[in-house]
Nucleic acid binder design. Sequence first.
DNA 1: GTCCAGGGCCTAC
DNA 2: GTAGGCCATGGA
Length: 208
Amino acid sequence: MILDIYHILFRTYKQQYWWPAESQDEIIIGTILTQNTNWNNVTQAINNLKNHDMCSVKEINSVDTGKLASLIKPSGYYNLKTKRLKALCNFLTGVNLANLETKIARRLLLNVNGIGYETADSILLYAYDKPIFVIDTYTVRLFNRLIPETKLFNYEDMQHIFHKHLPVDTHLFNEYHALIVRHGKEHCKKRQQICDNCCIKDICQYTN
DNA sequence: GTCCAGGGCCTAC
DNA sequence: GTAGGCCATGGA
């Protein structure tokens, strides 16, 4: 059923071409800026960084924190995110995650302040092409509705469900998560609301 | 005016 | 181990 839902979503929404960014550094920066934040606000912050030639790990390492905070202000939580961007970019100058095994890279990322499960996995999947499935609020909301038992699961338990039922395929993990977010934006916007008028309506109704 | 968005940390039980 | 508060802007 996990793979069936992917095919339905793909047929409905087509390829999503995630992560929407022009460089690896932009993806990494975006994972911090998008924490609990509307993507439109993130785009404004990213554009501010680009307009000042500061949308890179190297530039963020050297820029003054006050200036960085002012540029990312549209994304909200700007003081918090300034600290997190500084911590992450500083960390990345001392290590090349591309050369590390996924589990080790993930453990190192999780030790950086401001990097939780979802952000770490987004960086590994979208910036480093590591085959690891990202669980976000849309995923939790959708699959709690489809498979009520998953309400009992924590992040890594739910992630295990996807790893268990899907082939190890970076491209598939990338596309599936993007499709879940796309679907979440199109439908079921109210929390707890059951899907209707959406492509997996039959499965939703069946499991509810 | 209210609600929400592509989270994570800290504190108190 | 987990519920609740906090961080903040901009659009619907």
